[in-house]
Design a protein around this nucleic acid. Sequence first.
RNA 1: GCGCGCGUAGCUCAGUUGGUUAGAGCGCCACCCUGAUAAGGUGGAGGUCCCAAGUUCGAAUCUUGGCGCGCGCACCA
Length: 1144
Amino acid sequence: MVGGRPDFPALERSILAFWKEADVERRTLAQRRGAERFVFFEGPPTANGMPHPGHCLTRTIKDLYPRYRTMRGQYCERKGGWDTHGLPVEVEVCKALGIHSKAEIEAYGVEPFIHKCQESVWRYMKEWETTTERIGFWLDLSTAYVTYHRSYVESVWWALADLFERGLLYRGHKIVWWWAQGGTALSSGEVGQGYKEVADPSVYVALPLLDEAGRRGTRSLVAWTTTPWTLPANQFAAVRSDLEYTVLRERDGADAGEYVVASALATAFAEKTKKTFDIVATLPGSDLVGRSYLPPFDTFRPAGGLSGAELVGGGRQVAAWRVVAADFVTTDSGTGIVHVAPAFGEVDFGVLTTERARFADPAALDLLCPVAPDGTFTDAFPVGSGRFVKLVDRDIIRDLRQRGLLVHQEQYVHDYPFCWRADDDPLIQYPRQSWFIRTAQFRAALLANNARINWLPEHIRDGRFGNFLESNVDWALSRERYWGTPLPIWVCEATGRAEAVPSYAALLAKPGVAGTDLFDRAKAKQPDLCEDLRVHKPYIDAVTYDSPFAAGSRMRRVPEVIDCWFDSGAMPFAQWGWPHAGADAFAGQFPADFISEAIDQTRGWFYSQLAISTLLFGGDGPRTLPAGVAPPPADWPHPFRTCIVLGLMLGEDGQKMSKSKRNYKEPGVIFDAYGADALRWYFLAAQPPWTTIRYSERAIRESVPEFLLRLWNVYSFFVIYARIDGFDPGRLLDRPGRLDHADLAAARGWRPAAERCELDRWMLAETSATAAAVTERMDRYDHFGAAGLIAALVDGASNWFVRRSRDRFWAAGRADDSPAGNPDKLDAYWTLYETLLTVARLAAPFVPFVTEAMWRNLAVSPFGDRVPDSIHLTDYPPGAPALLDPDLVRRMTLVRDVASLGRAARAGARLKVRQPLAKVEVILADARAADAAWLEAHADLVRDELNVKQFEVCREPDRYITRSVQPDLKRLGPRLGKDLPRVRAALATADVGALLAACNRDGWVDVALPGGGTATLEREDLLVRTTAREGWAAAEGPAAVVVMATELSPELVAEGLVREVVHAVQAARKTLDLEFTQRIELSLCTPAAPLAEAIATHRDTIAAETLASVVLDVPIEGGTREEHDIDGHPLMITVRPLAAEGAA
RNA sequence: GCGCGCGUAGCUCAGUUGGUUAGAGCGCCACCCUGAUAAGGUGGAGGUCCCAAGUUCGAAUCUUGGCGCGCGCACCA
């Protein structure tokens, strides 16, 4: 059913059924087997949350290019994938179980907990599958990779083992964001979730300097901190050696000491403390470096005072509570002297590391940490022992004040991270053993690889992503959690030496392996237990083997699992189980030509993929491949060549989408109301993909008439009349081929473009040009530009071709090659048919449903199995170069402009189009003579469009317009530069006629400049602009001025009145809901003489236009009466339908 | 605080290496068509292109500095 209002959602459901029944998706792939590949990677979504509109966007983009490339003849696999590990899954399970802490999980039991996690992963699976299918995203979910699957885990193991073999995976002591109450470190992403603005105490603390003998003097450093609880762990004070420091003494202070602060901050310091200071001295920071000071607390201070330790190069120095030089010291805030507590800050820890390197025995510098993993002070710091550090701040401040070390105290408002799932728990930075990957030493390689990626938008490369890589730090890989890929490292109980295991088979091959039975027993008890869990906690933890490092000792796995981002980043090879399996699949599917995700994946999937690929497959790795397995080529970029980075999608109110705020409509609602094509077109055509999209139902709804409905209307127009006129391409053409222009040539009654009318040639030229341009854009991944071109083509077909061709479609004769056929009508059908087929195929990757419906009806209905049964099995239309006709396209634009200007001129003069006018004249600004002649030859067209009796290109333009000459700035700018204003001035006052005449004669002209000198200008340097003179009904555009004759003769007025009358009668017919073939009796009564006369004169016209058998001037008995006002004249219309007696 | 992006019509957004009269859709007003018709079309009004300075013959476009918004990073003490 093509007529009437289309029901897109219903249409789409039937198309979905067809795709499924006819196995179309698989066949599009099978058809291209062996062809050049287009490699696409699916970034795995997590299926334990509901899909929302943002996912619909990514899925639309991810579908578009594979569809397009497939139609272009490439072979594009679309293997799905699911991300299944990680804290979010554990959190979901904990919620369901009503538990929170690690202790509670342990109490519940790791084994049942893992089982729950594995089940929970598939919680919203159904919704994801439905959404994926409904939006038309062709993705093979049946072969989707799953990150918890054993083969996937073993691929990841191999990668980690390889890194370990190369010394790139190590165990380190680092400062991590620690959730003390939960007993785990959090990932940076998790930390980022939990920032809150809070007021913390901020203190200025005096650190008394010590002399050579270790005696305390009167002079103190002043350090600033917002975390007083870290003061007991103080180990250093940092200054910058190239800064100047000032020694201040409080004026009027009785026994005031002296304070050292950075000179740049001395004033601010004085203002803060509200004290008046005298400057005692200034000194460079370098003078402070090496000095000892008294730590704020004695926590770790040896009773016997400070003894030195031996330096690497000989000599001795005090190990702790010493001033060090550091670049990170700034004068932005504080005092220019930084309290360094290596246990509680990453930067601070860096200071310790640097200092350790200076000493012969690094152990001389212990890491001082008075805090237990649960966040409470140990007995080492009696003031706060047993209490959570943050709660001890006040006691610490009181203690400092009592001892005279507190210089100043205030509240400081700043952002501080809290646990994202327990937002009353502040996080602390805390030293913790974890496993790291040495990504930082690959910084240059990462950047080089990144430099070769085609990022869209481009600024991602050097902007967000590049910056991120520049500041790369080693990847903190391990997580002290449960549901994740277990870190495949086994450690010797006796020696602590470790080795990595690349696969389960390798583990089984170890000497004296034991513990594999834990899983077997669980499986025996619970036969449906997922086999993949064999490589997960707790089963894998039970597997031990003989240590190669110490006889009689066992190797045990470390307890950690890994960051789930490593899982997803390993997807290019792990999806095939490579290198343990899938060598061929991997070789053919690496690197990806195209991936796309939203910008939040910069440090997520984009980074994890790049980092893993660069480390494994860059210049010098991998080293541990099984025999016969080759690494992929190392050429950059890998593992992806082009990446479209999508903007974030916001809700209707411009805020982040959130379920609780209900600021977005569920995708399902949109699908049911407007259809998937509407949503897809909105995503693809309404804005470039990287802008932040404000998702709104209104915007989606409004995008429908603009494209989908218009396309449908043209299509529906064609179908309606093709049926009436018997246009049946299936009968006229035996071998349809690909239904391209050349194939249609074989059809009976088909005439070459050259023999058809101009409008047909124009339509075909536009179509061909658009096909070429769209292809070019799509090859550049510019679907936004391509969509604009397709929309413009549809607009041209609807609002120019169809509108101007109506009479041809309605002309007498059949649309076939029979004797009753009308060749021009047939031309019109062939032209529109070809255009529709081309447009449908161009738009197929964008709106796969409606275009499929069009193809099924336009091609499959008439040709049956002579053509592919799905549009997605066809080739993308190449366009026919022979049909291109730039001159015609330009001229048609010109005539459309003229028509448009004519209407503007009418509007200006308040002369509606129903009122015929005598004449319209056009003055072309700077057109070629051939264009003018062409335009004049199309007088009929313009007369028809503008309802005028006469049209001509004006021979005496000076009557209506003035001309001015302007310099072509783009051409002359580079040549004349500073002289331009003078050239402009000269041209403004020049004799335009003479100037142009000289130019046309000689090709150039010298212009005298106001300040002296001349400029030589060529004809091409001059632009002629025409301006309408006052007093005419005229409208001007860049290309032309259109002037309307406004004088109304009595005849013209009468004709105008008649058109109004016809209009009124048609309205009456419509009110009566008459069939358009229904004949009527009509009476028109008016007391107004001019109107009566006009009606009398044009009685036949009125009768013909309104299908009236008679037009009377007395009321008809039994007719329906309507009172009308015709340009101020009253008119009574009476209509009486006649008994049916055949069609018009 | 640092980094990235963005500020153009009432709303949502284009504007492709600096160039002449800055565009579209929606909304609004007016009009047209009435054989695609519970559709379709045309025209119009509406803009200090966030502000300021600079570079330039010329800036919505380039530079710098503000202001505002979004995102990322970050207790850099």
